[in-house]
């Protein structure tokens, strides 16, 4: 469990995980995870299915609060403050940490414009010029603007799968979150849409910090700067095996299990 901070470039830390664990009804799903997420970089979490990557990701924006049987232990520090502290307002937290889901999920009763504006409107922003600016800039950043600028009031369900996912990325970006969580965002998309979104991630780091869960390790190798490898233990709980810059993980990992996974010895 090495936490490797590249000291040659002074990157600051966007989010810190300290011994984080998630359990459901007392049974641990993932435990003892510690690493730092560097600001304005892409950090990926890889590992075979069942290793707890998605469960861990959802703890980062307190999505497990919606589940009565879930319990999160450890500390998750955003700007030095534990996001699970009593004084933290979850609605404020979630406006600073955005999320994109595995399947594109635009709101079906809203148009493209309204979907992207949804986060802004939820947060009480009403000024049209402000919303216009945020909608346009996030659609541009998500590389969707050119395709939809003339039909912003069309229902979101009319877009293709890849377009819908880019819409969801724009929707999450519109409120300017510090961190963007992505849960296997290209898993349900065709190869062309997948590569479009992968290209996108490079530009995203200009505006935010990306944490992405992916079961496709080649994708992790292509898009991420740092990589966390998780694996399910004998007691069926996920554990962090190694955290290092992506280069290191894929070329000379410290742990043998990491090497085995990279070489496809198990999936």
């Amino acid at each position: 469990m090495t936490s490797n901070v590249d000291t040659s470039v002074a990157t600051s830390v966007a989010m810190s995980l300290r011994n984080v664990g998630v359990s459901f009804d007392g049974k641990s799903a993932v435990g003892g995870v510690t690493f730092d997420v560097a600001r304005n970089r892409v950090t990926s979490m890889i590992g075979p299915s069942g290793s707890g990557k998605t469960t861990l990701l959802r703890a980062l924006n307190r999505l497990h609060d919606l589940n009565a049987s879930a319990k999160v232990t450890g500390e998750i520090l955003l700007d030095g403050e534990d996001i699970y502290a009593r004084s933290v307002s979850t609605t404020e937290l979630r406006s600073r940490i955005g999320m994109v889901f595995q399947r594109p999920n635009p709101f079906p009763s809203m148009s493209i414009y309204d979907n992207v504006a949804a986060g802004l409107r939820f947060n009480g922003i009403k000024k049209k010029s402000l919303i216009d600016e945020a909608v346009e800039s996030s659609l541009r950043v998500s590389a969707l603007w050119d395709e939809v600028q003339n039909r912003l009031d069309v229902m979101a369900s009319n877009l293709s799968g890849g377009q819908q996912q880019r819409l969801c990325i724009a929707r999450a970006l519109a409120i300017g979150p510090e961190i963007l969580l992505m849960d296997e965002p290209t898993a349900s998309l065709d190869p062309i849409s997948t590569s479009q979104i992968e290209e996108l991630m490079g530009t995203l780091t200009k505006y935010t910090t990306v944490i992405i869960v992916t079961h496709n390790m080649q994708q992790a190798a292509r898009v991420s700067d740092d990589c966390a490898f998780l694996l399910m233990d004998e007691d069926r709980a996920g554990k962090l095996i190694e955290f290092a810059p992506t280069q290191k993980i894929f070329n000379n990992p410290d742990d043998e299990r990491t090497l085995d996974y990279i070489n496809g010895r198990f999936g």
Binding site: L63, R94, N105, F122
Partner: peptide
């Protein structure tokens, strides 16, 4: 369910 999670993830009450 994922529509509801999306709504909360945007900071909705």
């Amino acid at each position: 369910n994922d529509l509801i999670e999306a709504s909360y993830s945007l900071g909705g009450s």
